[in-house]
Amino acid sequence: MSVISINNISKRFGTTQAVDQLSFDVQSGEIFGLLGPNGAGKTTCIRMILDIFEPDSGDIQVMGGPMTDEKKNHIGYLPEERGLYQDISLGRCLTFLATLKGMPEKLVEAKLVDYLKLFDLYEVRDKKVKELSKGMQQKAQLIATLIHDPELVIIDEPFAALDPINTQMVKDILEEKRDEGKAIIMSTHQMNQVEELCDRILLIDHGHSVLYGTLQEIQSQFTSQDILVSALAPLPESIDGVASFRQVNGRDLLVLSEGAQPNQVLKQLINQGVEITAFEIAVPSLNEIFIQVVQQQAERQNG
């Protein structure tokens, strides 16, 4: 089921076209990666979904229709520019933010204790927010985003300022939410986290959709005929069908000549008595795809 359905939305600020004819949808039970370089239009896009800005044109459907006050209660948002009320206690701050999501105070009290314990913040609940570390404040923000059990979670750089243990915990929570059928839009520059968590992604640049689909679909678009090989002994200096090879992370990356097939190369290596421990098609990382696509876009813009 589509939790968000966006059709051809555009937004212009003065002379800047922030978002241009963008369309995508987000399904329940998926983690959707919204990616793009700085200034690509991600935040504007999120703000339009959240009804902070109205699109100049196009249509946004959230949970089956336009945004309403009631629907806002079912959305959890962790913005890029984030913060908490600094001069009040953590407990009071989170209670206030949760009640603004329509939660009765009694329910907030009960759920807040669980969340504070989960995020290891229970002991500091009476401290003023400004007395907490950056990491603690980041965890508190995540509590504010999730405490009302939203159907749609929009999070911008959720792992910033978190240590590896807390990063893993947040990842587990996001996966748990996905399994519960919640829709999650995650915007981040940490491509390894996207590869690990996201089911589908949208890469935007200069307000346009550049890549859109499942991770496998996108990676297959960028997969070349290159092969990654691990062997117990050095590879022969010359292999038919291999144009060149180089070391990548302790393995050999073989760049095939035009028309050469990986299975032919594998056959040759076995026939030559090379003891192979790993042989795989070199799939580009999302990071490499991101850089490649964004650079191509920049060249196109400049040229």
């Binding site: 902070i52 959305i75 913005p79 913060g83 009320y85 600094q86």
Partner: peptide
């Protein structure tokens, strides 16, 4: 001003108008 200084505005306006 605190709402802006603390960057809480964006969270709050996704809950209320």
């Amino acid at each position: 001003v605190e709402e802006k200084e603390n960057r809480t505005m964006e969270i709050v306006i996704t809950s209320v108008t």
